[in-house]
Design a protein around this nucleic acid. Structure first.
Length: 888
RNA sequence: GGGCGGAUAGUUCAGCGGUAGAACACCUGCUUUACACGCAGGGGGUCGUAGGUUCGAACCCUGCUUCGCCCACCA
């Protein structure tokens, strides 16, 4: 005989406040999140998508983390050795911008401080905000191995970044060159194609005349950027353009200047766009740049890195782009060179971080040659080495990877991994090395300077799955936990991050970075709007945790999670799940009030139908929830648990167990019922634990199981001795009868607490229904608050006087009401009921009348229709008999 | 220009081939000793639209309407 130390003094209402903090500290103390290399166990690993150190955790993170935590906790319970590796991202531009903004408040610019001082300031910022984010993760309940926390700019990762850079460079997969890049004049740095966000905007097409040399007339060119005309070096037309064929090879004069430029042909020109003639400005437009290279044209830069016109722009020097444009157009007009303007909508690129209009800018930059890397990445998914969930994202991935362009990785910033390249002032040679060189590797001059640019922040993120585990050193962690099992992230960073991790993982580990990648939807507000600080519709997870508790927030996010649809979150939703915590708490409180210290065995022979029902359902939950979680469907799992606890356990089982627990059914029944209750909670709490870790741990202890943390228990295996075939269907008959009788009570306006004297259930005595109901009469009396429920055959002569009647299945349920029956109302109710059933019979009959249906539909479907007809017909007969007796 | 996703009760969403479900909101009645963070009951939907496949369609296929997202070098 075992006994447990139960805590029967639970507060009446659940309060998460102290409980969550308490358990989190205990878990940490006990080292329960620590990932250990255990050759005996299978590994399960996740590296966290490192949040930016720029701010605080938002509800999107909370969702992301809840999902990962549910996976990790479940896998631990399933016996895996689990690593959930946490960390944060230095977030290059984003962080530099916030710190700069912060400094600007004090009137300081980064140039005032100088590079070294400024970077020091950012590190100070990182210290404060980075640790704040970590604290927030802990409040959520994240079961990360904090001993292994990493930062994308820490020493180990810097080593990895350098190693990767050098190896890619030596392999020819990183190159440096002067190209047109996307340039943010405000951030004063190059950005990658992905960091440009396009939006449709109103703009103007200026139709400009380029006077022909040696000929009368002019060529008309449509441009949106007249201020770049001083940078023009040619006009281009399509080689097969009828309109311009004979102008190829002629020369024109650049408007408002003396420069003469040629008319060339190039098939990149779209003859149907604008006037069909394109002005070529290689320094300020990507296409023009390519055409310029092809035709060996000069690159004349007229706008500088700050978006200001330079000396090549002549009189416009010093003007901002917009001002220069206005002035230039005015001058064109005065010179009679502007034919017309036309309003158009075109898409304009903006800097992802600051919204400034992006300029195509010619500059010296570093690039990753992505094609060869991408090919392997595509192959890995095609081979099934990486699985996308939901699968649809595979297409998006392929589409991008198959059309990938080289990745501009250099940033003219101060915060980030400085590019490990040293440029020799004497011979110009570039030395790329993992360790700081002291001399030029080519001419051995000591006169070398390190490249001042830093790397795109995503460059270091791309290495995250292996750099965090000690690469390039040969660490046992790498062997054991790499490839990681799962990557959980949003679709917004599939290209930025997921694709690049795949490429880098394959290149440097020769294996995929993760087996499965789960892409979840975005969290929006209750109206479907994207949450943003400016809109003021942000739901702060920390505020929600303070208000409702972390468990409630987690359960909400889990239950709302659906594949392929945005998630709309509101605080009333969280409230619903907050109520669920209380429900679970009180159900447990009830159980504890009725459990002895002694743990009672379940005597199978003592079980009633509802005991068998709840035992069976409990075992079903153990296997179903596990299956759902293993297939990443945590939404269904959470909702199923919610319904099970609230519906099956609380609404039905706890109510039905009351008489036995009170001792009304004898001591043996009391003990067995206690045993069932114990089994239900001992199994269900662990199933709930991954979703709501805190409250389940607290209850686990209250039940007296606290010698071992619930976190450390194994996932419950369904026990076959507690699975009773067909019990759910049997239970349904009881439930339907109860519902029908309760409905009659409500019809009769009987107050819920009032006990009625008598109710009658009439059913043929040799039926299954009769058998089930006979065994459950006490339960029905109890659940419906009727002192005496009488079961009698349908043939028995009716002797109980005026009554309300209804039917369910093959039973008729009657509630005698003495002389107070409202006959009129009862008649119309019965008629209504007859009508509904008749409609159902008719639709079933109509189907059965079709030969095709009977011939082609599966036998069981046909049989179901037949029984619906026969049962319905019988029900109508009974209802009609009741009607008749009323009409008399 | 390509691609993807959504359109189901007042609202937010499940369901994805066999007679429409949940939560919230709403209505009726309740201090039923686990829980008013609750209990019991109820009203409310021709499942965007037009066709097709099928014995049978909210569910599969095709067009259309509509909302949203992503990609692409419209000068």
């Amino acid at each position: 005989m075992t006994t447990k130390k139960r805590n029967r003094n639970l507060e009446k209402n659940y309060s998460p406040d102290n409980i969550e903090q308490k358990w989190y500290s205990k878990w940490i103390e006990a080292g329960l999140f620590n990932a250990e290399i255990n050759p005996e166990a299978k590994a399960f690993s996740i590296v966290i998508p490192p949040p930016n150190v720029t701010g605080s955790l938002h509800v999107g993170h909370a969702f992301d983390h809840t999902f990962q935590d549910i996976m990790c906790r479940t896998k631990r319970m399933e016996g895996y050795s689990v690593l959930w590796l946490p960390g944060t991202d230095h977030a290059g531009i984003a962080t530099q911008n916030v710190v700069e903004k912060d400094l600007a408040k004090k009137g300081i610019s980064r140039y005032d401080l100088g590079r070294e001082e400024f970077v020091k300031k950012v590190w100070e910022w990182k210290k404060i905000y980075g640790s704040r984010i970590i604290e927030q993760m802990k409040r959520l309940g994240n079961s990360c191995d904090w001993r292994r926390e990493r930062f994308t700019l820490d020493e180990g990762l810097s080593k990895a970044v350098r190693a990767v850079f050098v190896r890619l460079y030596k392999k020819g997969l990183i190159y440096r060159g002067k190209y047109i890049v996307n340039w943010c004049p405000r951030c004063s740095t190059a950005i990658s194609d992905l960091e440009v966000e396009y939006s449709e905007e109103q703009g103007k097409f200026y139709y400009v005349r380029y006077p022909l040399i040696d000929d009368d007339g002019y060529i008309l060119v449509a441009t949106t950027r007249p201020e770049t005309i001083p940078g023009d070096v040619a006009l281009a037309v399509h080689p097969r353009s009828e309109k311009y064929k004979n102008l190829i090879g002629k020369n024109v004069r650049v408007p408002l200047s003396d420069r003469i430029i040629p008319v060339i042909e190039d098939n990149m020109v779209d003859p149907d766009l604008g006037t069909g003639c394109l002005k070529i400005t290689p320094a300020h437009a990507p296409d023009d740049f390519l055409i310029g290279l092809k035709h060996n044209l000069e690159q004349i830069q007229v706008i500088d890195s700050q978006g200001i016109m330079n000396e090549k722009a002549g009189k416009y020097k010093g003007m901002k782009i917009e001002d220069a444009r206005r002035e230039f157009v005015k001058d064109l007009e005065e010179a009679g060179l502007l034919e017309k303007t036309e309003t158009i909508t075109h898409s304009v690129g903006h800097c992802q971080r600051c919204g400034t209009t992006v300029e195509p800018y010619l500059s010296e930059q570093w690039f990753v040659k992505t094609k060869p890397l991408a090919e392997r990445g595509v192959q890995a998914v095609k081979d099934g080495r990486i699985k996308w969930v939901p699968e649809q994202w595979e297409k998006t991935y392929f589409n991008w990877m198959e059309n990938i362009r080289d990745w501009c990785i250099s940033r003219q910033l101060w915060w980030g991994h400085r590019i490990p390249a040293w440029i020799c002032k004497d011979c110009g040679h570039i030395t790329v090395a993992e360790n700081d060189p002291t001399e030029c590797e080519h001419c051995h001059s000591k006169n070398i300077n390190q490249e001042s640019d830093v790397l795109d922040t995503w460059f270091s993120s791309a290495l995250w799955p292996f750099s965090t585990m000690g690469w390039p050193d040969d660490k046992p962690e790498l062997k054991y936990f790499y490839p990681t099992s799962l990557m959980v992230t949003g679709f917004d960073i599939i290209f930025f991050w997921v694709a690049r991790m795949i490429m880098m993982g394959l290149e440097f580990m020769d294996d995929v970075p993760f087996r499965d990648v789960y892409i979840h939807s975005l969290i929006r507000d209750e109206h479907g709007k994207k949450m943003s600080k400016t809109k003021g519709n942000v739901i702060d997870p920390l505020v929600m945790i303070d208000k409702y508790g972390a468990d409630a927030l987690r359960m909400t996010l889990a239950a709302l999670s659906v594949q392929g649809r945005d998630i709309l979150l509101s605080s009333t939703r969280i409230e619903t799940y907050r109520f669920f915590m209380n429900k679970l708490w009180n159900a447990s409180r009830f159980a504890l009030m009725n459990l002895d210290d002694e743990v009672h065995e379940i005597d199978i022979n003592q079980l009633h139908m509802h005991d068998k029902f709840i035992l069976t359902r409990t075992q079903e939950m153990a296997s179903k929830v596990r299956e759902l979680i293993d297939s990443y469907d945590i939404g269904t799992a959470a909702r199923m648990l919610y319904d099970f606890v609230w519906g099956d356990v609380c609404d039905w089982y706890l109510e039905m167990s009351k008489p036995a627990l009170k001792g009304d059914e004898g001591e043996e029944r009391r003990k067995t019922t206690a045993g069932v209750l114990e089994e239900v909670f001992k199994t269900t709490l662990p199933l709930l634990h991954p979703f709501i870790p805190f409250v389940t741990e607290e209850l686990w202890e209250a039940f007296g199981y606290g010698d071992e943390f619930i976190m450390k228990t194994s996932w419950p295996n369904p026990k076959s001795e507690y699975i009773f075939e067909g019990i759910n269907e049997k239970m349904r008959i009881l439930q339907d009868s109860v519902r029908t009788l309760r409905n009659l009570r409500a019809e009769a306006h009987v107050a819920p607490q009032q006990w009625l004297n008598k109710a009658v259930i009439r059913v043929n005595s040799d039926t299954e229904t009769a058998k089930i109901l006979t065994a459950s009469l006490n339960q029905i009396e109890n659940l419906c608050r009727v002192h005496d429920v009488i079961l009698e055959s349908l043939e028995t002569v009716w002797t109980y006087g005026a009554s309300l009647s209804s039917v369910t299945g093959d039973a008729e349920i009657k509630l005698p009401v003495g002389g107070v029956l409202d006959v009129e109302k009862e008649i119309s109710r019965l008629k209504q009921e007859i009508e509904t059933i008749t409609k159902n019979i008719n639709s079933s009959q109509a189907r059965l009348n079709k030969a095709d249906f009977v011939a082609r539909a599966p036998a069981e479907v046909v049989e179901k229709e037949r029984s619906k007809v026969s049962e319905g017909t019988a029900q109508i007969e009974r209802l009609k008999a009741n009607l008749e007796s009323l009409s008399k």
